[in-house]
């Protein structure tokens, strides 16, 4: 409902009787924001004195009670890197087929989209046991950064495809007609014109997927494993920031200090990611005049 349309009429009826619904309705957002502030404030309060350069670079000692999270940051980077390196090309290829080759309302597109929606609805613990049975055992990758990264890749694929397809569809039809008119082939138009124009949207989708990957725990516990040493190869086990928080708060008595520090780092990373996302969406809106739907 637009803001412009309601006030004039709504206010006239509000003059007649006091509108008690406003404070009642507004109480809910106030409560939600209060709980969020409580949570984020508490995490900042608990974690702030932990967060230091040495904490970020040192190796954990004494099961993580002392020392830092250097190797954990490295493992997180590797796992997320593998995840994006496999998921992104696959997602771009799938979205280009759906948006540029197949008719928009064809049965094939509908079926593919349904299958991807179903994939997005699968609970993360199921991705975890799948990755354990498939990547770690059947393919023999063991508890490793590789297994974890590939499991996460299957998980974020629908998010990536959804946003990349959306970005390609927002590029005006004229660009395709002009490209064809200049004698370019379709692959050339896609590579030189459409993908560059869609790049802010593609990047926004990538950040969205990155956020999901950073937040994940259940899919990683049985695929990338718990080892907190500095990884030497992609077949080594490595724990992410999220798993570190989980392990410290569940299995290590007296580990809540470093857990709070790691939680704060994780939250800060996600807030930065969120800020970058908003900035990209603003660029996107200016360039295309279209909104960018963040699927919740």
């Amino acid at each position: 409902m637009s803001e412009a349309s309601q006030p004039l009429l709504a206010h006239r009826s509000a003059l007649r009787r006091v509108d008690w619904s406003a404070p009642a309705v507004c109480a809910i957002p106030v409560a939600v924001v209060a709980v969020m502030a409580w949570m984020l404030g508490e995490i900042a309060w608990l974690g702030a004195d932990k967060l230091s350069w040495t904490f970020l670079t040192e190796a954990p000692r004494n099961a993580g009670r002392e020392g830092g999270i250097g190797p954990i940051i490295a493992s997180t980077g590797l796992i997320v890197g593998i995840c994006l390196a496999t998921a992104l090309p696959l997602a771009v290829a799938t979205s280009v087929l759906i948006a540029e080759y197949l008719p928009a309302h064809s049965r094939t597109v509908r079926v593919m989209r349904t299958l991807l929606d179903v994939l997005a609805a699968v609970p993360s613990i199921v991705f975890g046991v799948f990755g354990y049975a498939f990547f770690a055992l059947a393919l023999g990758f063991g508890f490793s950064i590789l297994s974890g990264g590939l499991t996460l890749a299957t998980m974020i694929l629908p998010i990536l495809i959804g946003s990349i397809e959306q970005s390609l569809r927002a590029v005006p039809l004229d660009m395709r007609i002009a490209g064809a008119g200049l004698g370019m082939t379709r692959p050339a138009v896609i590579a030189r014109v459409l993908l560059p124009l869609a790049s802010p949207g593609i990047l926004a989708g990538t950040l969205l997927g990155l956020g999901r990957a950073l937040a994940e725990t259940a899919a990683l516990v049985f695929t990338s494993g718990y080892v907190a040493r500095m990884p030497e190869s992609l077949l080594d086990s490595g724990r992410t920031l999220s798993i570190h928080v989980f392990d410290l708060s569940m299995n290590v008595p007296g580990g809540s200090g470093p857990a709070a520090g790691t939680t704060l780092l994780l939250v800060l990373l996600l807030l930065v990611l969120n800020g970058a996302l908003l900035w990209l969406i603003a660029i996107w809106r200016r360039r295309t005049g279209m909104s960018f739907t963040l699927t919740p």
Partner: peptide, 8 residues
């Protein structure tokens, strides 16, 4: 992240 909510 769910682990952050869990920690809190």
């Amino acid at each position: 992240p769910s682990v952050v909510l869990g920690f809190w």
